[in-house]
Write a protein that binds this DNA or RNA. Structure first.
Lengths: 155, 155
DNA sequence: CTAAATACCAAGTGATTTACTAGGTAATAC
DNA sequence: GTATTACCTAGTAAATCACTTGGTATTTAG
């Protein structure tokens, strides 16, 4: 699993689309304005998202983008994998002199960890994030946050 | 949370160190040989790890590296944060015209998600991975894997 | 005391990625 | 028909990646 700023841009843009696309398509110009991402960069990201059927574009005036499927069917892992091409880390494709050595021991461990992270992100859907956000908007000061307090201990 | 190949190199190297460092220090030359990582690149990674007290170096013949603390006290998040400098994603540092707009809504959501991923990795220690690996070595074909089958569905 | 082994350090490098700009073409609503 | 939108291609400065080169500092073995 590769998790870079590019993936964050994509997740952020998709979140914006999910939040604002309730009635009618959302233009990339709006997302660009909302999220402060350059229009052309968004076009590149959405080309990748379109290839994976995560979004659907409509041309012409009044056009824009819809989600390609329901927000509940789109996981964060889907989004990140669409724009951040998966790169194979281990050089030994199972074969080679690597098998059996101490080298593949850690490779296997890393692969397991990698799967765990992937599954973690695959379990969170765009719909989850939207509901989470709406809940926050309405309760505002209710201490019932699903995601924990998240006072940026991730720094 | 930034998760790139650089972080994987660091985690892999630390895993190698934890597995082979039971008696006496492990040299970077050994890790380089075991894991197929260039010696000088390892030196750079270990410089960062040393700064965070995750490893301790011993010079001279018979020298090498020890873990800076017990494997149970070192989380995967610790390792990745040591080598992959944390980059702030949102441009609005809380202030600015951003607050209140639809922009910060998704920013907040991303921050929450980011925290979740961080906490997830902060909950896995090097010691966990080592025990996981030893378990696998001894049971080999027992279907009691802690991490699931992980037949690379993360691809 | 000397030589070898190791950590430690600094500079540079080609390849790739990032986020962007520029300059289009294609389809559609009005 | 014209404006608006998606869609496409090429290029680019800056950063990052993984590595090479060429050292210096410290410690052990002999």
């Amino acid at each position: 699993m590769r998790l870079s700023t590019k993936g964050r841009y994509a997740v952020t843009a998709m979140l914006d689309l999910a939040l604002n696309g309730k009635n009618g398509p959302v233009t990339l110009a709006e997302i660009s304005e909302n999220q402060g991402i350059s229009l052309s960069y968004l076009e590149q990201l959405f080309a990748a998202l379109r290839n994976k059927d995560l979004v659907r574009g409509v041309r012409g005036p009044g056009g824009g983008y819809y989600l390609g499927k329901s927000a509940d069917e789109i996981s964060i892992a889907n989004i990140i994998c669409a724009v951040d091409e998966w790169v194979e880390f281990t050089r030994c494709g199972g074969r080679q002199n690597c098998s059996g050595g101490a080298r593949c021991l850690t490779h296997t461990l890393w692969d397991d960890l990698s799967s765990e992270i992937f599954n973690f992100l695959a379990d969170i859907s765009l719909g989850d994030l939207v509901r989470r956000n709406l809940g926050k908007k309405e309760e505002e000061d209710s201490p019932l946050s699903v995601v924990g307090d998240s006072n940026s201990q991730a720094a």
